[in-house]
């Protein structure tokens, strides 16, 4: 396997609120290898976006990293100064947001936004930057890029704009692209094109992708590995094929039930009865225990930690601990 590009270790993200400290990300650890696509799934509010924000150093105050570390090629980046972290953003870690309609500054032309980004990270002339920008647009599939580069965002359709966003995110050739639900806001007809584009273009440049999505179908088709988050905790992680065919955590199994067939679409993960508890009202033990069909007494008392289950898989569930113990 390729070298580890990004390593998240025991990440804790907290929000100090008037009613006490809220732990939104609770000791989450995972790795992303160079060039791989890591899918991140979980219900709304599970902490997917926060994880991405923590990695790229854009947690919004009062949110803060309260524990753990984030390493990029072995170097810690979670404790870098503001300026050093800024240099990493865009240049080494890129990000694509959910809504292409609102991701672009409406008052500036595409050219201006691209050139600005390129020149922030590369010491090139305006002209040179412009050439690169045109090439990038061309690459992400904007027809007549040379002409359209001087247009304003509102001249482009949603799908086209997301291509522009991708071009912007990749403008400085980052090693990792965090794509946070990049197709949710798009017309269904273009969703797969965009996913394909991200995958293709990243593969081309050897960039790894952290693909945050609700869409298990996308994960199944695109990701190499998948991480499942629940209430700010990592419940399962492993190679996509293994997780899909043999999910070990009951929550993951519920999620897999929601993989749509090609014709039928399922948007949100509604198959599991009940709802994810609010962070302020987490049960003791396993956070999933109120909804779990196979809940054990222990699940209500102690919190399971992710444990290696052979190969590259980890699961945080007492069921498997139980089995492991049984084997002894």
């Amino acid at each position: 396997m390729a070298e580890v590009l990004l390593s998240v270790r025991d990440l804790v993200v907290e929000f100090p609120t008037r009613r006490g400290v809220l732990t939104a990300i609770d000791h989450v650890s995972f790795d992303i290898h160079a060039g791989e696509v890591l899918g991140v799934v979980g219900e709304s509010g599970a902490g997917k976006s926060l994880t991405g924000a923590a990695i790229i150093g854009l947690l919004e105050p009062p949110g803060r990293i309260a524990g753990g570390e984030i390493l990029l090629k072995g170097k810690r980046i979670d404790n870098l100064g503001a300026e050093a972290m800024r240099r990493i953003r865009g240049k080494r870690i890129g990000m694509v947001f959910q809504d292409p309609l609102t991701s672009l500054n409406p008052l500036y032309t595409i050219a201006r936004q691209l050139i600005e980004t390129i020149r922030t990270h590369w010491d090139v002339s305006e002209k040179e930057a412009r050439e690169r920008a045109v090439a990038l647009l061309d690459r992400v599939g904007i027809p007549a890029a040379r002409r359209r580069i001087d247009e304003y965002p509102h001249h482009f359709s949603g799908g086209m704009r997301q291509r522009v966003v991708i071009a912007l995110a990749l403008a400085a050739e980052p090693e990792l692209v965090i794509a946070d639900e990049p197709t949710t806001a798009l017309d269904v007809s273009v969703q797969s094109q965009i996913i394909d584009l991200i995958k293709e273009i990243c593969a081309e440049r050897g960039a790894a992708v952290m693909l945050i999505t609700h869409d298990m179908g996308v994960i199944a088709e695109t990701a190499d590995r998948v991480a499942v988050l629940y209430a700010g905790r990592l419940v399962e992680i492993g190679p996509v094929r293994d997780v899909i065919t043999a999910a070990e955590h009951p929550y993951t199994r519920g999620l897999m039930g929601s993989i749509p067939t090609l014709t039928q679409e399922t948007d949100r993960l509604v198959q599991i009865p009940g709802a994810m508890p609010r962070l302020t009202a987490l049960p003791t033990g396993c956070a999933f225990n109120p909804r779990c069909e196979q809940v054990l007494a222990r699940c209500r008392a102690d919190r399971p930690e992710p444990k290696c289950r052979g190969g590259a898989r980890q699961v945080a569930c007492w069921l498997h601990e139980q089995k492991a113990v049984d084997h002894v």
Binding site: L58, A82, K91, G94, M95, F97, L104, N105, L107, E116
Partner: peptide
């Protein structure tokens, strides 16, 4: 707004983000 977040995510300087992008809007 998203475009400010996105501008930060692209590594633009605070100056560029606050004055170039945010202020103009």
């Amino acid at each position: 707004t998203d475009y400010i977040k996105f501008a930060r995510a692209r590594g633009l300087t605070n100056r560029a983000v606050n004055f170039g992008h945010a202020l103009k809007n």
